[in-house]
Amino acid sequence: MNLITIRLAHLCENGDDSLANDAPWRTAPTHIRKTSDRHKNLPNFLLYRKEMDVAWITQDFPAIAQAEIETLAGKSAKQNGDLVFVEASLKGLEKRLAFTKATYTLLFSCTKKGMQKAFEAHDWKITKDFRVTTSRSPLPAPLLGHFIKTKSGKQVNLHTPTNHVMVFGRDKIHVCQLHGENDSQFEERRGRNRPAKHPTTMHPKLARAMVNLTGIKKGTFVDPMCGSGGLLLEAALLGFTCEGVDIDSRLLAKAQQNLQYFGVSSKLTKADSTKLNKKLSHVALDLPYGRGTTRKDLEKTYQAMISMLGRNLKGKAAIMYPHWADVPALVKKAGLSVCYELEAYSHRLLTRKIVIAKR
């Protein structure tokens, strides 16, 4: 193992490493801890870990938040309350993720009892100045800032800090350094704030998550049942080339109006999307479930749409559907694999589900 990739992590007082057993990181092999000249004289409450990043997620839909992080980071993650830990860089993804408030690099973790020793022992690589913010920390931010200032010699800056240290936890403490915060203006794009309104418009946060769950990083994003353009809007705002298809020209006109209002564009096509015959790499769609249509007719539409994806999909598709439909079974019947099955509660009478299908 390359020692350069090993960083200071879980800190336990009096050599107690019991918390490491269920922690979301791995300790270094024993022979490294014993033979490394660089680390052999460390206090006995120190352990090692691989580099790890942390996402501070909202509590709207935690499972969806973790799934979109795993999809974009390309690594499995572990969730602990409102934190998601992943052995991959999340830097910059906070601007894209729907249900993440901010992303951080994990500096170290410690027990409540060993907190002061941990702060005093850590090698604080602070440039210029810093600020400390806490969430449920047993020690106040000013005291923690004093420890860092004493060790690093850098000044506290509460308003425009160059480095932002965030401390999470009450009993098990996670000390992180901020990458960036999510400043997406989702509320400004809610259905009621769009020029062309539609009663079943998806919340922009959920629409953004659907786009992310397709795993798109380049190429064309397609919504084969685009309606008034909610999914297209979120994909276009991320800078992707977009294409929307719908059989209703009135809905396409609404989509065009909404996209223009927010300064983005998409190719829009009037067609029966169940008859599409083209390769699709990144697809998201919200299957209809509205009034005025029998469940039997809806099930026929679902089957036709999933069959179309079975013929054309070469990447991933994020499919939203009502709780009463067995869309995962249709996905498998169409020759596709299921990556995730997720839930997004809407109201007492409806829970929307999401299945992520791939070739």
Rank of each mutant, 00 (worst) to 15 (best):
A28R: 06
K300M: 07
N2K: 10
W25F: 15
A236W: 02
P29A: 04
G145Y: 01
T27V: 12
T269H: 06
R96F: 00
H10V: 09
E70C: 12
N258A: 06
L313C: 06
E120I: 04
P161G: 03
L8D: 05
L90S: 04
K117I: 05
V331M: 05
G92N: 07
H31I: 13
P62N: 05
L11H: 13
V283D: 03
P29L: 05
V245K: 08
M225L: 15
A317W: 02
K149F: 00
I319T: 01
S228P: 07
L298G: 01
A357P: 04
Y302M: 00
P62C: 11
R49D: 13
I6M: 11
R194C: 07
M305W: 05
T200K: 14
K50M: 08
H159S: 15
I247K: 15
M320H: 11
G114K: 02
G191I: 12
Y302Q: 03
L158Y: 07
L259D: 01
S18A: 13
N258Q: 11
H179F: 09
T214F: 00
G153Y: 02
G292T: 09
P224I: 08
I64S: 10
L252Q: 07
D53T: 09
T160H: 13
H323Q: 12
L106V: 04
T294K: 01
T160I: 10
M320Q: 12
K267F: 00
V54I: 15
N14G: 09
A271M: 07
D37Y: 02
M166Q: 11
K151D: 01
V338A: 08
T127C: 09
Y289M: 11
Y289R: 06
G239S: 10
F186P: 01
V165Y: 02
Q59P: 08
T111I: 05
I126R: 04
M308K: 05
M210V: 04
I4V: 14
T71G: 09
S89C: 14
L330R: 06
T301H: 11
R359Q: 08
H198R: 13
K275D: 03
T150S: 13
Q257M: 13
M225G: 00
M202W: 07
D129F: 00
N182M: 03
R348D: 09
T134Y: 05
V264Q: 08
H10K: 08
K154D: 05
L268S: 01
R38F: 13
T301A: 05
T133L: 14
L342W: 08
Y261M: 01
L178D: 02
A28I: 12
D22P: 00
N277P: 01
G74N: 10
K113D: 12
K254F: 11
E51V: 14
A121M: 11
L93E: 00
L158V: 02
P142A: 04
S36Y: 04
K300Q: 13
C110V: 03
N41P: 03
L107D: 01
G81D: 09
G230W: 02
D183P: 10
R291A: 13
K197Q: 15
A253V: 01
D272E: 03
A209R: 06
V165D: 00
L90F: 04
R7D: 12
K316R: 15
K95N: 15
F221A: 02
D16T: 06
P142R: 03
G239I: 09
L8V: 02
S228N: 14
I32R: 07
G191P: 07
N44L: 15
M52R: 13
P328Y: 01
K332S: 13
L144Y: 00
L268R: 04
L158I: 07
